[in-house]
């Protein structure tokens, strides 16, 4: 074995040439294209980075907008709640006022109805009492009671000025309940003539409305002593109406009522 130095030198030269050729046709072009790709990748990365930053900024803006919208919503909700609360209070106050007014009106109406019912009930009670009294007095009344009451009428008549009766009253109607028999009429005609004079025409009538009693009816004066007035006074007292006292004058006709005579004539 021996070393072929020519071959050794040629192989060294071959290797150097190969290295140069590969550098020119392989390493350098590949390095260049890799650098280009790296630059492209860097560009894309930078673009992606910028896009990401933009997206991040957009996301932050979006979140900021969301936060602002949420705050605005809360504010609007708070305002709406406050407004609703105010409205509710006002409605409640209005409703309370209306309810109070309605209750007061209802209470007044109720009081009025109660009062009217009480009045009606009182009227009914009075009517019932008067009816019962009228029925009872009608049953117990008689000539004796009529005579007593007629005597009371005459006493009141005697208390009046005599000139007033003689000058102005030519006709006298004597109403009694119960009616007088002919003897009683003759006796009382004489009794009345002595009191008011003979010129006065005396007519006797029976008036059931008196219940019991007698009434002297002049054209401008009525003198009454009868249960009717007594019961009417009792009814007025029971109903809180104006009282009709003894000797009171009512309307154009003077009606004299002797309550004590009536009380004395009660059975």
């Amino acid at each position: 074995m021996h070393i072929d130095f020519w071959a050794l030198a040629l192989q060294a030269v071959n290797f150097a040439v190969l290295a140069w050729l590969l550098q020119r046709f392989l390493y350098h072009p590949i390095a260049r294209v890799v650098a280009q790709r790296r630059a492209l990748v860097e560009t894309d990365l930078e673009a992606a980075r910028q896009a990401r930053d933009a997206a991040e900024a957009y996301r932050q803006g979006y979140e900021h907008s969301i936060a602002e919208i949420a705050a605005e919503r809360e504010r609007v909700m708070a305002d709406a709640r406050a407004h609703i609360e105010s409205e509710r209070r006002q409605v409640i106050e209005r409703a309370g006022t209306q309810a109070a007014a309605a209750m007061a009106a209802q209470r007044r109406q109720l009081d009025e109805e109660r009062r009217q019912a009480a009045v009606a009930l009182g009227d009914q009670a009075v009517d019932l009492a008067l009816t019962l009294s009228q029925r009872l007095l009608g049953q117990v009344g008689g000539q004796a009671v009529t005579a007593v009451l007629l005597e009371r009428v005459c006493e009141h008549l005697a208390a009046l000025p005599s000139e007033r009766l003689r000058d102005r009253e030519p006709v006298l109607q004597v109403a009694t309940m119960p009616g007088l028999d002919p003897d009683g009429q003759a006796r009382w005609r004489a009794r009345l003539a002595s009191a008011i004079g003979d010129a006065v025409e005396i007519i006797f009538v029976t008036d059931e409305t008196l219940i019991a009693g007698a009434e002297l009816r002049f054209p401008s004066l009525i003198v009454t002593v009868a249960w009717r007035e007594t019961l009417a006074e009792a009814r007025a007292n029971l109903m809180g109406a104006r009282a009709i006292g003894p000797g009171a004058v009512q309307g154009q006709h003077q009606r004299l009522v002797d309550a004590e005579a009536l009380d004395g004539a009660k059975p």
Partner: peptide, 26 residues
């Protein structure tokens, strides 16, 4: 061995030239 080396050089350089004719980064 020198002749074979030349052939190998031709193959390597030819392959490199062929492969690097139309290089594309994308």
């Amino acid at each position: 061995e020198v002749v074979t080396t030349w052939v190998i050089m031709a193959v390597l350089v030819g392959g490199a030239w062929y492969g690097s004719r139309r290089l594309s980064a994308t």
